[in-house]
Design a protein around this nucleic acid. Sequence first.
DNA 1: ATGGTTGAGCGTCAA
Length: 269
Amino acid sequence: MAQTLRIATWNINSLRLRLGLIGKVVEALNPDILCLQETKVPDELFPTDGVAAFGFDHVLFKGMKGYNGVAILSRVPLQRQDIAPDWCEKGDCRHLAALAQVPGGAVEINNFYVPAGGDVPDREANPKFGHKLDFVAEATHWFAARSGLQRTVLMGDLNIAPMEHDVWSHKQLLDIVSHTPVETEGLNRWREAGFIDAVRHFVPDDQKLYTWWSYRNRDWRASNRGRRLDHIWTTPDLTAGLKGYEILQDARDWVQTSDHVPVCLEMRV
DNA sequence: ATGGTTGAGCGTCAA
């Protein structure tokens, strides 16, 4: 009954601008399910036919004009799960949940786009940072209340690099939004509410791993000042089925690409 | 401390 499922996440930073690059992701990673963040497209303008041309016949999206927006593209049937709250009561399109219908039993997919949090790591001076911390705390409590979750995946652009070697310089980034202790501790509590870090399952903690390189570095590969902001977590019952992962670093060199690269996980479910 | 770059969409704001 078990089948191999390949699931991927990518902050695409405008779906309409980079629709063609979905084809390159399919070619490179062959995902059954592709979670996108920062689609930046209102639902009435979502390119359903465009993504179907790449083999994704089952699509869920929650978007808005200009900012944010998430989508789940899938080759297997999806059943939308509208069970989560409106995080921080902002209505800003940062989470989509669905049951992926696979023969071994449904797998719950949670696609998150956590607020970036602005530049100043102080909730008094910078309300966007407060929003980020509140979002993570609210999500932590919500998942903790769903005790005993199984066959569940949480993935997306979580905008926090939690471990020392998830950034190019731990010491230089301790006061930089995305790697401050209050954020990394918050993200760890969220994960511990019921998940394991499926990519770190394959990579020792002392090895560098990045999924994002700023547009502001002229030569991202040479400077290599990356951060691991994009994550795939699974509930512990799925650990035995984990087969491998790929961070598609080559995508950072594509013409007119995103500043994030796709992350893919293969598992038997 | 600042700047560096990109996208949405035409003001700057968000990242």
